[in-house]
Simulated assay, not measured.
Amino acid sequence: MGIELHHLRGFLTLAEERHFTRAADRLRLSQPSLSRNIKRLEEQLGVRLLTRTTRHVDMTPAGQRLYRQLAEILPRLEEALRPDRSGEVLRLGFTWGFPAEWAHAAMSAFERDTGVRVDPVRRDEPLAGLDHGEADVAIVRGQVTAKGVRVVPLSEERRILAVAANDPLTARRSVDWTELPKLPLVINTVSGTTQLDEWPPENQPVASAVCTNFDEWLEAVAAGRGVGVVPESIASSHMHPTVVFIPLGGAPRCLLQLVVPRHGAHPLTGAFITLAKEAVSSWLDRSAK
C-alpha cells in the first residue's frame, strides 16, 4: 500500500479539528496539500472516511473506526521512530589550522539542533582520516583528487608568504607569486596547500625542506630553511614568534571545502553541511565589513 505517515497524520489532525483550514495550519501545510493527502488515503483504503460540506467535516463510520485506532497507535509509532541520540558523535577531521571562526559556530548549531556532539579529530593526512574511517566529515584545504568522496566547496582563501623573522624579505610590503621560483620553498607534502606542481616544470621553486605535517613546516620556516605559502587565515591562528607573514600578490586562491564519503556517510552529514555553509557565509559577511 502507498499509505505514508503524513497521510495518517493529516487524517488524524483533520478528524480532531473538523476543519480543513485549521488542520492545515496545525500541520503547516496548504489546504490543497491536505486535501490531496486525504484523497490519497481514501483511495488506498477504498472507503470514504469523511463527509464534507461547505462548513463542516464529519467522519463516516469507517472514519470513526480508523480515528479510534490511529489515536492510540500513531503517537506510539512516532515515539518509536524518534531516535535516541545520546552518546552519538560526529567526528570532524582536520589536518591543521582548525578554522575556529566558523567551525565552532557550525558545531554549536549542529549540537543544538540534533543533540549530537561534534568532536574535532586531527589527522596529518590528505583527507584528515576520512579515508580510514577516523572522521565522518573532513575540513580540507587545496585540491582533492581522491575517489569515493564528495567535495562540498565552502570558500576560497588568499595565500600569504611565511618567512623567518630575520629574512631580508620582511622589509618588503608584498611578494609576487612569480618571484617564488627564485626562492627556496619549504613544502608540506602530506597536508600542505602549495606543492611544486603548481608551477610549470621548467620554472619550479627548489624544495629546500620537505616536511610531512604543519608543525614541522612551521619550524622549518622559522629556522630559515626557506619560505612557505599558506592560506591567509593561518596568520591569525598560528602565530610564531620568529615567523613573519607577508602578502603574496598574484597567487591562486586556496580552496576550503568539506569532504564526506560518497557511500556510507553519517546520517546527519547533510545537516552539518547545511549549518557549515551558513556559518561560513556569516563569517565571510563579517570579514567583508
Score class of each variant (00 low, 15 high):
E78T: 11
R112N: 12
M107P: 05
H56A: 15
T114A: 13
S86G: 11
A165C: 04
R55A: 14
R141E: 10
V152L: 04
I139V: 11
V144Q: 06
V163E: 01
A165N: 03
S174R: 12
V116P: 05
Y67S: 03
V152I: 14
R158D: 15
V137M: 02
S155R: 14
R123I: 07
R85Y: 03
R65Q: 13
E157K: 08
R48Y: 06
P75Y: 06
P99E: 12
R173Y: 08
W177Q: 05
R173P: 13
L92N: 05
R173G: 09
F98V: 09
L50H: 06
S174H: 09
R91T: 11
D124I: 00
V137E: 01
R122A: 09
V152C: 04
R52S: 11
A106Y: 03
L154F: 07
L70C: 08
L130Q: 08
H104K: 12
S86W: 00
D58H: 11
L90R: 05
R76G: 04
R85M: 08
R52A: 12
V152P: 00
G129S: 04
E88D: 13
F98D: 11
Q69P: 00
G63E: 08
R122G: 04
R150K: 11
P120V: 08
P120N: 08
E111S: 12
L66G: 05
P99S: 14
E88W: 05
L81Y: 06
E156P: 00
T51A: 11
L70H: 09
M59K: 02
R141T: 06
P168G: 07
A162D: 00
R123C: 03
S155H: 12
D124N: 12
D131Y: 01
S174W: 04
T145R: 13
P153C: 08
T145P: 02
M59P: 06
P120W: 03
E157H: 14
L77Y: 13
W102M: 08
R91A: 07
G46K: 14
G93A: 10
Q143S: 09
R85C: 06
L90W: 06
E79D: 14
D131R: 10
A165V: 08
R122Y: 00
S108D: 10
A128L: 05
V152H: 10
R65Y: 08
V121L: 01
P168K: 07
A162T: 01
S155K: 11
V151G: 03
E111A: 10
S155C: 13
A62P: 01
V175F: 02
T114M: 12
P99N: 11
E72S: 09
L45M: 15
R48I: 12
P75Q: 07
D136H: 14
I160K: 03
E88T: 05
V144R: 07
P126W: 01
R48E: 15
D167V: 01
T95L: 00
V151F: 05
Y67I: 00
E88P: 03
